[in-house]
């Protein structure tokens, strides 16, 4: 693992509805790290992910991603789609009108992959998350675990440098959780992904973590920077 920070957060604060929900926060995440972010509900865990992704503007402070100033106070210097960041949302957030193949094709097309190369890449991604054979299924016809793995494949289709995981195991039963944790561990090692993983139950994913950040009322109480 290199010690170069891929994400650097400096005095970041986020306000929502006139209330300070995150910060002031100082944080550095190094390349290849799997940072576990824990804390009680409403402590700002998801807001932190959204701020890194550029889906949430800061009130003050700065965020650098891969050496580039990405967010500065209330301005997005780098838009979300250019941050090389992918996110696994709570519940998957799959597009209901697209089947598995169309979902992945949509991402690859947006990333300007030539159409001739797409089928092979789609097959590769589906194999990676063990969804081969379910190409034609829409989200409504997938089980909870399959849907979450398709969401993971969608995130990986973006070739991200940073993978943000927002309680991805939440709706799954124990067996599926274990299966997805194993899958994540394999992918992390194989692809050398930098991962920021939000959870309210750190015990089950502790073995993935290289470091744990605990947030309380939007402020880091241990583990940072």
């Amino acid at each position: 693992m290199s010690a170069t920070p891929i994400v650097r957060i400096e005095a970041a604060q986020v306000m929502l509805g006139g209330r300070l929900v995150l910060g002031p926060l100082e944080l550095e995440i190094v390349r290849g790290e799997h940072l576990l972010v824990v804390g009680p509900s409403g402590c700002g865990k998801t807001t932190l992910l959204r701020a890194i992704a550029g889906l949430q503007k800061l009130e003050s402070g700065r965020i650098w991603i891969d050496g580039a100033l990405a967010s500065e106070e209330r301005h997005l210097r780098v838009p979300p789609e250019r941050r090389k960041v992918a996110m696994l949302f709570q519940g998957g957030a799959l597009w209901p009108h697209m089947n598995a193949r169309e979902t992945l094709s949509f991402v690859l097309r947006a990333r300007r992959m030539p159409s001739a190369q797409r089928p092979a890449r789609i097959a590769e991604l589906l194999a990676l998350v063990e969804l081969t054979g379910l190409e034609q299924r829409k989200p409504g016809a997938l089980s909870g675990g399959e849907a979450q793995r398709l969401a993971l494949a969608r995130a990986l289709a973006m070739d991200p440098q940073i993978l943000l995981l927002d309680e991805p195991l939440g709706p799954l039963d124990a067996e599926l959780r274990e299966s997805l944790i194993t899958r994540l561990a394999e992918l992390q090692e194989r692809l050398n992904l930098t991962t920021v993983h939000v959870t309210h139950d750190p015990r089950e994913v502790q073995r993935l973590a290289t470091r744990t950040l605990t947030l309380k009322a939007g402020v880091a109480v241990e583990g940072a920077p």
Binding site: P80, E81, F89, A93, L94, P96, M98, F106, A110, R111
Partner: peptide, 18 residues
Amino acid sequence: RREEAALLVGGLRSVLAM
């Protein structure tokens, strides 16, 4: 969240396409 997933993929153009 569905919209943000598309936004991360390719910005406003991808949001509209989705």
